[in-house]
Amino acid sequence: MLYILAGPDDFSRTEALTGIKKGLGDASMLSSNTSVFDGKKTTPGELAAVAQAMPFLSEKRLIVVEGLLERFSSDASKSRGKKTTRASAKQNDIESYINIFTNLPESTVAVLIDGEMGKNNPLFDGISAKAKVSSFPLLKGERLMQWIKNRVTKEGGKISPEAVKLLEKQVGGDLWVMSGEIAKLATFALGRQIEVEDVSRLVGYTRQANIFSMVDAVLGFKAGVGQQMLQQLMFEGMAPPQILFMISRQVRLMIQVKAMLKERKPQSEIQMKLGLNSDFVWHKTLEQSNMYSLERLKELYHKLLDTDVAIKTGKYNDELALNILIAEMCSTGTS
C-alpha cells in the first residue's frame, strides 16, 4: 500500500502518519519494522532493498520517505542546472522509484511525505494512480474555525462561536500552537463551554496583542496608553525582562520587514523567512512596519538596548527602567 501525504500543514501530516501507524497493528512490533529515509539523499537501491524485505515477526513493514517528491519537482530541476548526463540519470532514478512504489509487496506500506511538490512532478504522475493521496494545505478562515470546533470536541470540550473567532484571529494557522492552546483551554474549562474570557486569559497570543498595543503607544507618543499596557502585561503575569524581550523582538521584526520590503521581496517570502506562522502576528507586524519611519524604529531599538544595560548593571530596577523608557520615547523623536 502506498500513501502520499503532501502540503505545508505539517501538523495534520503528522497526525495522518500516526493514524496510518495505528492501523498497522502492534506498535512495538511495527517500530522494529519501520524505516525512515531522507528523500533528498536516498537512492533507488536503498529503498528497493528495504521495500522488498519481509517484515520480522510482524505482518507489515513501514517505509517513510520524506522529501522525495519535492526532489523531482520541476522547480527543483530548474535550480539544479542543465547538464544532460544529470538529466538522464535523474530520469533513470524516476523510473526506478516508479517501479518500486507501483510494485510494493502486500507486506510493505510506504508513506511519502512532502511539504511542497511543485507542478509537473513526473514521479507523482507515475505513482499517484496506485496511491492514496491526501493534501494538507494551511487552514484559514472558515476551514480553520471548523478545525478549531472539531479539535475542541475531540478534547471533550465545548466552545462558543465568539471564542472560536478570537482563537482563529489570535493564533492563526499554526496547528501545533493551536492544538496546545485548545488542550489548555479544555482542561481549564472542566466541561463547561469555553468562552471569550477564557481565551483572553489563557492564550499566549492575547499577550502578543498587548505587546503590539504597547509598541504602538510608545511609537505614537501615547505615554498614558503605554503605561497602562505595561501594567496590564505585568498584571497578566509577565515579568518586566520578558516584556522588554518581546518589545525588542517586535521592533527588530519591524525593521527586518521594512528592509525586505525595500528589496521588493514578496510578502509570503518575508513571512516564511521570519518564521511568522500566525497570520495575526504577521499582518500586525506588516501594518506596524508601514506605520513608522525606519529612524523612529531604530531610535526605539537603541533605547531598548540602553534599558537592558541599565537593568543588568543595576542602575534601575526592571519596572522603573521600562517606565523611564516609555516616558523618554513618548517625549522625544519624530514619527
Rank of each mutant, 00 (worst) to 15 (best):
K60S: 15
V65G: 04
L69D: 09
S74W: 13
L57E: 07
L57P: 03
S77A: 15
L69K: 02
L69I: 06
S77G: 15
R80Y: 13
L57A: 13
A76N: 12
V50Y: 11
G45K: 15
R71S: 01
G67T: 01
I63T: 13
K60A: 07
L62W: 09
L47Q: 11
A76D: 10
K60R: 15
A48F: 06
Q52V: 02
S74R: 12
A51M: 10
S74E: 15
L57I: 07
S58K: 00
S77W: 10
L62R: 05
R80K: 12
G81L: 13
A48K: 06
G67C: 01
E70D: 10
S58E: 07
E66I: 02
R71Q: 04
E46D: 14
L69H: 10
S73W: 05
S58R: 00
L47T: 08
E70N: 05
F56V: 05
A53K: 09
R61E: 14
L57W: 13
Q52T: 09
E66A: 05
E59M: 02
I63P: 10
R61N: 08
V64A: 08
S74F: 12
I63G: 09
L62A: 07
I63Y: 06
E66G: 02
S77F: 11
E59I: 00
G81N: 15
L62V: 02
K82Y: 09
L68N: 03
K78A: 13
L68V: 05
S79G: 09
K78H: 12
P55T: 00
R61M: 08
I63S: 11
L47I: 12
P55M: 00
A76F: 07
L68P: 12
S58A: 15
K78S: 14
G81I: 13
K83D: 15
R61H: 09
F72E: 01
A49C: 02
K78P: 08
Q52P: 00
G67E: 14
K78I: 12
R80V: 11
K83F: 03
G45C: 04
M54R: 06
R71E: 07
V64I: 13
L57Y: 10
K83R: 09
D75M: 05
S73R: 02
L68C: 08
E59Y: 01
S74H: 10
K60P: 11
A76H: 07
E66V: 02
A76Y: 12
K78W: 12
E66Y: 04
E66R: 12
S79K: 13
K60L: 06
F56K: 00
L62M: 06
K78Y: 14
M54T: 04
F72Q: 00
V65A: 14
R80P: 05
V65F: 08
Q52G: 04
L62G: 03
I63L: 15
V64D: 14
D75Y: 08
A49K: 04
V64H: 06
V50M: 10
S58F: 01
